[in-house]
Design a protein around this nucleic acid. Structure first.
Lengths: 208, 208
DNA sequence: CTGATTGGATAGTTTCACTATCCAATCGAG
DNA sequence: CTCGATTGGATAGTGAAACTATCCAATCAG
């Protein structure tokens, strides 16, 4: 375990913690006080750290993703759905708002083929509710249209670039990493682009 | 205060907490055990809740934004920069990575007019570092090009829609809300679009 | 005058992700 | 075989963040 810690850069107590929480399967025991770990453990630890540090995904969700990946009987389709749901935010407690149905209807009318229970719908509905409490009730789901169009194109090229020939676990890893790290990148780039355009408009000239 | 609580939907102890943390200025005291709050307090509480619940912005950062807004001597330009920085994530400790300079150079080469110290650069650099640890060192900043193009367009239409005629605090409020709620919306829409395209490609037919 | 209420200060709670301590078993040197 | 050091695993403790609850003195209503 000490060696695993050195090879992955993760402290031993943290590895123990991840083991307890089921994020990492135990190495092959070679005696009561010794276990053997391999390259897959190093890989897994790297994945865990990326999800934690870049994506800020809670440990409990990482565990859910990992369980789905380990379950070989789960079809790839369901696995991807599980990963997507686990990487998303907690749906708000309480019964679904009418806003939720509103945004779902709007997207479906635009031709989007999405599940009724996607957690991202709750996020979107919450965002629309927030806009309504700030700007008044006559804000509709169409405020998101520009964003939806951009998201549609981005996701299309993302899915095009998924390489399913590398086997199940490689594909899932691609999706997971893609979902969380490119999300952070997209958000960061939007902020930077806002700064750029803001300089252009209210410009006082210097950029640094 | 009880009335303020009822009008805003925020529990009295939470209002006291926000008062302590400087997110809300005290009402006009009408005696040692009474204070008068007005509509601006209700507005402010709504803003705080949106930032906390939708944007998951830490209380300390909300306080920083609020202080900048209250400081009437701060030019709008600086105010917007402060808000942007405060709403972004904490830059990682330690000296800046070389990756950071790499992404900054790449974006500047593409004509982006951005500050050297934008915290979003740290996020972007961390994302690129993560990709390199997972996929190997020959990944360059150009992996983000598609996202950068999308972000550029989105930010452009966003800045176009900023209405600066409503006064300083209204403008800032627009920027703040726009930054955090449309960010959540964009992220949610990307996930939904991924689901849509995923159905289209690996389709098994039903959509939930 | 008196009993309930209020604003403000202080202390406690909960959750999360670790981090440190213990402990019994075992590995290695002699 | 013996004995001290080390290891994996279980248990307990830590620190940050955002509330939440309790106290307390002052005051408002009747």
């Amino acid at each position: 375990m000490k060696e695993l810690s050195e090879r992955s850069g993760v402290p031993v107590p943290s590895i123990k913690y991840y083991l307890r929480e089921g994020l990492l399967d135990p190495g092959e025991a070679t005696g009561a006080t010794q276990a053997r770990y391999d390259g897959r453990h190093v890989e897994r630890l790297r994945l865990i750290r990326v999800l934690r540090e870049i994506g800020d995904v809670p440990v409990a969700r990482i565990a859910a993703v990992v369980r789905a990946v380990e379950d070989e009987s789960l079809p790839l389709q369901d696995l991807l759905a599980t990963a997507h749901h686990a990487l998303g935010p907690e749906p708000p407690e309480g019964q679904p708002s009418t806003t939720r149905g509103e945004v779902l209807g709007h997207l479906r009318a635009a031709g989007w083929d999405i599940s009724t229970k996607a957690p991202a719908l709750d996020v979107l509905a919450a965002a629309l509710d927030a806009l309504r409490t700030m700007w008044g009730p006559d804000v509709g789901p169409e405020v998101f249209d520009r964003y939806a169009a951009a998201a549609f194109d981005i996701a299309s090229t993302e899915l095009d670039s998924v390489d399913a020939t590398g086997g199940r676990s490689a594909t899932v890893q691609q999706i997971i990493v893609g979902t969380v790290v490119f999300e952070q990148a997209l958000v960061a780039l939007r902020r930077l682009a806002q700064e750029h355009h803001s300089h252009r408009r209210f410009a006082s000239g210097d950029a640094g």
